[in-house]
Structure formats: structure tokens, C-alpha cells
Design a protein around this nucleic acid. Structure first.
Lengths: 120, 120
DNA sequence: CCGCATCCTCATCGATACTG
DNA sequence: CAGTATCGATGAGGATGCGG
């Protein structure tokens, strides 16, 4: 049935994309996407099982669904190798790679202020 | 009872703050916060009722709760003027203002790619 | 190995009515 | 004007078991 891989979250209502920020955040928001994107930015290409191991708390359901959404939003490319046992690799598309500066600036701000506000 | 104004979302589990990105996103994530921050960045100081009018879909409950969280996270300053009728103004703290480059880069990416992926 | 389907929980959010 | 209180709906996310 495919449920039409509902791309990102602002299809109907959801995030107010009054400014582009709402749109961008709808793509990277949620609990897992930023983590997934971050891994792919640093590893350039990863297998499903590698992602599972890299992201400790994630369930299979979530990993798959988030990857599918990222794929539908054209941020991530999914490559299936018709082998046995099966092998599937995920990599960033050009669009996904174009997020690097944005993600980097988010990461930078976070790294810089995490210690200040929440002295861990 | 005050429910201890639970600051941001990563108190217990929630977003994986493995990298600073998770932390930053936990502060600006959700449906409304980016919008609120954006208004305050461009207006430097706004009253409660002005925010309500500027952000069409938001309910009072949400506006208040999001403002309280932003305040607890030290991004927004709340100033109460002991007048009648009451007047309350919200403005960005220095920490909030320090988000400008990050928010700008998010906005930039969104504005640039919104038309491409979702030809509206 | 790489998923999908199902069931379920619980936080989040919307609407409404009310208050200092 | 600037909120608070309460209730109900919704949907993201977790656990588990099965399938190609």
C-alpha cells in the first residue's frame, strides 16, 4: 500500500513555513533526523546496520521511517545492492550535502553553549 | 504547582545530544519556537498580544508555554510592567541574540531550497 | 541482512472557558 | 491585557514478531 511516503511534515498544516526556517526545520526536526544526517555527513556512506549501531537508542521502525522520509525529501540516497545477503547503503544527495553549512552552524552553536547554559 | 518550568526537552531522554546539534535543536525545535524567535530577532521586543497577532495559528496555551520554555532556556527575557492594564514585553537575551547566525543560516537554506524541492 | 506490520503508550498540542 | 485550567484529540515514537 506504500502510504505514499509522506515526505516531510508540513504537507498540510504542521510547522508554519512563513519563513524558510520552518521548512528547513521540518526536514531536520524530530528526534532522529539530525543524528542520522550528522553521521552521513561524517561518514559519506553507511549501511543500514552501521547506522543502527551508530545510533544506540533507535528502533528499527524509527530508523527505517526516518530514512524513508529523508529519502522522500531528497536529502538521502538509498542504494540497494542485489546481493545475498542483501546490502543497502545510504548516502547524502547533493541536496543533503548542501546542508553542511547549516548543520555545522547549528552544531557550532550547540557545542559552544551547551556547557554554559547546562553546566554538565 | 508550577510544574517546574521544564526548560528544554533533553532533560531525561528525548533528543540525542551526542553532538551539539541535538542540544541546539532541542531549544529551537517544535512547531512554534523558531517562529517566535524569528519575530523577536526582527522586532527586538514584542508584547504578548503582538506575538499573538503576528503568529496566526497559535493558541494562547502554546504561546505561553513556548515563551516559558524559551525563558527557562535563557533565550528570551520576560519583562512585566506593573501597570493596569498589565503590559508584558518579551525580548531576546544575549544568548538568544547569539542565535542569529545559526537561525539565519537555517532560514537561508530553507528559502533557497523550498522552491526547488516543493515547487509551490 | 534489511526491513515491514501491528499494537500500544504517552507527550504534545488545540479549543474552550475562566481569572487577576 | 495577559495569562491559567481543563479536557480531548492526535500522532510521534517504542516493543515485538514476521517476511523476502
Amino acid at each position: 500500500m506504500r502510504k505514499e511516503t509522506s515526505s516531510n511534515a508540513l504537507n498540510e498544516k504542521k510547522i508554519n513555513a512563513t519563513c524558510g526556517m520552518g521548512y528547513a526545520l521540518s526536514l531536520i526536526g524530530g528526534r532522529w533526523k539530525s543524528n542520522i544526517l550528522w553521521r552521513l555527513l561524517n561518514s559519506d556512506k553507511l549501511r543500514y546496520s552501521e547506522l543502527r549501531r551508530l545510533i544506540p537508542g533507535i528502533s528499527e521502525r524509527m530508523l527505517v521511517s526516518q530514512l524513508r522520509e529523508l529519502e522522500a525529501d531528497q536529502l538521502v540516497l538509498r542504494v540497494v545492492y542485489p546481493e545475498v545477503p542483501p546490502r543497502v547503503e545510504y548516502a547524502l544527495t547533493d541536496l543533503g550535502k548542501s546542508m553542511r553549512p547549516m548543520l555545522q552552524s547549528i552544531s557550532d552553536w550547540g557545542e559552544m553553549h551547551r556547557k554554559v547554559t547546562a553546566e554538565d
